[in-house]
Structures are given as structure tokens and as C-alpha cells.
């Protein structure tokens, strides 16, 4: 043992100093590098796993929302189709009603116009009769200036009546 100690110059003081050196290394590495870094890595790992978890939850939520959206879309499309059909029906009914009404109105206007025309025609005929009568009277008067006017007029009226 003594031979080993003297050959290798083993000295307890040097061993203690080297132990202290190692203790410093351990303390510094643990306190300033390993502990904070391990903490940071754990935090990062937690953040990442939380992120992955959130992403999975969000994916489920997105899928659910999409399914809900599709369902609502189908419902909305159905409602829109029903509404469109109803509207079309209503519009058709209204169109038919309006058409009927306008036909009736037009017929009424036509009838009124006809009546008015008839009346005007009759009135014109009457006026024409009078005018013709006057004309005939005057013409006849010219031709038969010698006859008294009262006879002439009676004759004229008689002639006109015979004409018609």
C-alpha cells in the first residue's frame, strides 16, 4: 500500500481538493444548467402535449361543427325549396287572379265602350236624320219654292218616313 501511495504520490489533501472541484462542477451544472433546462424542457413538453391535445379537441370540434353545418345546410336548403315552391304557387295563384281580373276589367271596358259607341251611333243617326231632314227640306224648298211651307214640311216628313 505504501508503495502505491509513494509511487503515485497519493495525498489526501489533493483528493479533497479534487472532491471540492467536482462538488463545484456538480453544483454549478445542476443549479445553472441542468435544473433550469430540465424545467424548460418539461414545460415545453407540457406545452407541446397540451397543444397536440388541443389540436385533437379542435379537430373533433371542427368535425362536429362541419357536421352541424352540413345538417343545417340541408335543412336550410329544404326550407328554401319549400319556401320557393310556396312562393311559386302563390305567385301563380296571384298571376291567375290578376289575369282573370284584367280579363274581366277589359271585358267590362269593352262592353262599356260598345254601349257608349252604340249610344253615340244612335245619337249620330238621329242627328243625321235631322240633318238629312233639314237638308231635304231645304232642297225641296228650293225646288218647290211655290208650295206653302207647312205643306212642304208635311210632305217631306212623309217622304222621309217612306224612305225608312
Amino acid at each position: 500500500m505504501d508503495a502505491v501511495v509513494s509511487t503515485f504520490h497519493i495525498e489526501w489533501k489533493l483528493i479533497v481538493v479534487q472532491l471540492v472541484n467536482f462538488a463545484i462542477v456538480f453544483f454549478v451544472l445542476y443549479r445553472y444548467a441542468l435544473k433550469p433546462l430540465a424545467q424548460l424542457m418539461n414545460d415545453r413538453k407540457k406545452t407541446i402535449s397540451q397543444g397536440v391535445e388541443d389540436a385533437a379537441t379542435n379537430a373533433v370540434l371542427v368535425a362536429q361543427t362541419k357536421a352541424l353545418f352540413d345538417e343545417e345546410k340541408v335543412k336550410a336548403q329544404e326550407q328554401a325549396r319549400q319556401l320557393l315552391n310556396t312562393m311559386k304557387k302563390e305567385i301563380e295563384e296571384k298571376r291567375v287572379a290578376m289575369l282573370t281580373e284584367s280579363h274581366e276589367h277589359a271585358a267590362k271596358i269593352l262592353a262599356d265602350t260598345r254601349t257608349q259607341l252604340e249610344q253615340e251611333k244612335n245619337m249620330l243617326i238621329k242627328e243625321a236624320h235631322n240633318a238629312i231632314a233639314d237638308l231635304v227640306v231645304q232642297s225641296t224648298q228650293k225646288v218647290l219654292e211655290d208650295l206653302p211651307p207647312s205643306i212642304d214640311e208635311a210632305l217631306i216628313h212623309k217622304a222621309i218616313k217612306e224612305l225608312y
Partner: peptide
């Protein structure tokens, strides 16, 4: 050898300090 060990300790301390600072 002891001087070398001290240098080694110094290197490790500086390394730990840099790691801590750049964390």
C-alpha cells in the same frame, strides 16, 4: 493536474453560465 482541474472547472462554469444566459 490540479491546475488543469481548475481550468476544467472554469470551462464548465462558463459553459453552464452561457447555457443559463441563452436559455
Amino acid at each position: 493536474a490540479m491546475l488543469s482541474s481548475w481550468v476544467a472547472v472554469l470551462v464548465i462554469v462558463v459553459f453552464a453560465w452561457i447555457v443559463r444566459r441563452k436559455l
